[in-house]
Write a protein that binds this DNA or RNA. Structure first.
Ligand SMILES: [Mn+2]
Ligand SMILES: [Mn+2]
Ligand SMILES: [Mn+2]
Ligand SMILES: [Mn+2]
Lengths: 157, 157
DNA sequence: GACTTTTTGTAGCCTAGGCTACATTTTAAG
DNA sequence: CTTAAAATGTAGCCTAGGCTACAAAAAGTC
């Protein structure tokens, strides 16, 4: 199981190339698995913050899926401890869900800002960010923030 | 079906906010659906270019999945006209598959380069790019290329 | 209050992409 | 040539996340 440091006589601590590559793909797959949940909690939080209610039908319409699909995913949110709901009442977020929503929203904005900063048109930035956001690590996010700060300084002397 | 230009008296040609948002999510979902295929063709093309053979076992090991999973996805590649294979021979790409591989590889590199350019550490850039790449539109790619070109000019006077 | 519409929920189906277990074929050793 | 190992393929299972169709409840209308 534990990848032996390898019988490569030349380099010492390096994993085999294949293993490194496999790890990349695995990470991308796991990010994808949480993407749907992230979008749901962010959207639910938005709805709760603005209108006051997050109804399954609204959620479905915003996401572009049927209400049956939305309800099923909401069930998963509840199972994972991110949301709660009672029959014919709207959906609410647990503290965990709310915390996730905040992080997801911040990340979404940062990704859009970075795309804009490197010259991506606004519409396109919003569109692409919806998918990209789920694959940006915290390290990259920090780099984005730093880049944006520096760029501001350069323009605002 | 056709979204009526809306009964919003204020603005004229604007779709309802919900529809715009739904379109974003739909686009992200469809990008996700092709992500696996893109990674496969890129990897197969790499293997063919370097070693000369793309065997299911190698593909599986590089992707971090079992060979059964790899073979199943290869079946899908064939069904979609991207690859060919014969029993116990390796996998090959059709012209369409090869073309896709080239585009995917170019996009991958461009994404990594952009991440590096805005200050993301190399390891992290490679890691994140594996997921991000599938969600970057052509318009954004053009913007990335332009940004990189300009940044080069700034450093190489 | 009766009736209609909307919302919500449930059931059942499909595909993609994971997995394990087992069968077969090819390749490598001896 | 025989046999062991590796590669390949198949079968069957699971989950996630889509969908449609139907059922029940809530909300609006008259
Ligand atoms: Mn998203
Ligand atoms: Mn988002
Ligand atoms: Mn990828
Ligand atoms: Mn890639």
């Amino acid at each position: 199981m534990t990848a032996k440091p390898a019988a490569t006589p030349q380099s010492s601590v390096e994993l085999p190339v294949e293993a490194v590559q496999a790890r990349r793909f695995e990470k991308a797959r796991s990010a994808q698995a949480t993407a749907v949940l992230e979008d749901y909690v962010e959207l639910i939080d938005d709805l709760l913050a603005s209108g006051g209610e997050a109804r399954p039908t609204d959620i479905a319409r915003r996401l572009g899926v049927t209400h049956a699909t939305a309800i099923k995913t909401i069930t998963r949110l509840k199972r994972e401890g991110l949301a709660t709901s009672k029959l014919y009442r709207g959906v609410f977020l647990t503290p965990e869900g709310h915390g996730l929503a905040d992080r997801v929203r911040a990340r979404h904005r940062l990704v859009v800002d970075l795309l804009r900063a490197v010259g991506v048109p606004e519409q396109c930035a919003e569109l692409d960010a919806e998918g990209i956001e789920h694959h940006v690590s915290d390290v990259a996010l920090d780099a984005f923030a730093l880049f944006l700060k520096r760029q501001l300084k350069r323009q605002d002397p």
